[in-house]
Amino acid sequence: MGQLATALVTMILGVMGCAAYFYGSNFLLDKIFPTKSGAAKEVARNLRVANTIRPWLFLGPAVLLLTFYLFYPVLESIRLSFYGRSGEEFVGLSNYKWLFSSDEFYESFRNNMLWLIVVPTAATFFGLIIATMTDRIWWGNIAKSLIFMPMAISFVGASVIWKFIYDFRTGGEDQIGLLNALVVFFGGEPQTWLTIPIWNNFFLMVILVWIQTGFAMVILSAALRGIPDETIEAAVLDGANGFQIFYKIMVPQIWGTIAVVWTTITILVLKVFDIVLAMTNAQWGTQVLANQMFSWMFNGGGDFGRGAVIALVIMVLVIPIMVWNIRRANEEMEGR
């Protein structure tokens, strides 16, 4: 409770400090350059000055935070990738050499590629199918809500949930993991699912697909509802059947949204490490880049240089999406 009280006080102080900054700085600006009364010439000059300064008062904290937490670290990571474990001695390209000759890197890179192919595809596909079908039934909203729910569950929480499903009991004991129970019910042999090479990756991916399908569904459902009824009615009059309407009329019209969903999930996949850490701790060939980076950062005292190199690989994978996003945003701004 003592901690809660301290936290409460710190929290109020933090929030008030924030508010005080915005109030105080704007108050000062208005005091130094009054614009609400006075001679026209002076007001005009003050206004110009105030209008030049004020945006930066508004933006100041955000720009500082973004610089310190995101912009500077990117540059610093690039620098560190040329330095040794403590980040002090220059080692040239040796971190890169190490990376490209390390088996673990190829393993995690291969796994990451598998994740990148499977998860966005599966989540978008299921999302689209569910969105289409739930729009047609009266209890669609309840169904959507339930499928959307895993979105609120942490990756670690989801890992516990699924680890329970993949649970394995030796010998003749009753299987309490759902998957093995089903296998036994249909006459199969129970398996330790998480240790089967290659395939265990897919069992981990299932978790992320389970979480992200709801996201894809919600957005695609909104996009589907945005399709003008007339185009579908016209297709019906032209004699198209349900599947033709879906593939030839509806999907092409929401292509842009599908791309957005796809890229959003792709970025998420690149950053995923919690699931691997919690499910297998990267054993049995399930390593991914984000988790490998995390290991190098902390395990055995940490190696900042090697960690930074792996982070850079993730960054490079993200850059095409980043460029595409910025271009899209610019087009949008010009449209306004």
């Binding site: 945006p55 933006l59 720009v63 973004l66 310190f68 937490y69 995101l70 912009f71 500077y72 670290p73 990117v74 610093e76 990571s77 560190l80 980040g87 970025i267 690149l270 950053k271 984000a290 980076m293 995390f294 950062m297 900042f304 960690g307 930074a308 792996i310 982070a311 850079l312 993730i314 960054m315 993200v318 999406i321 980043m322 996003n325 910025i326 945003a329 610019n330 701004m333």
Partner: peptide
Amino acid sequence: RALLVAAVVGLLVVPLQMSLIPLLKS
């Protein structure tokens, strides 16, 4: 302004992993 908006959109996808080591040092 346009540059800042573009920067925000760009930073939207920067992986956290990039930031961890430099920030930990700081």
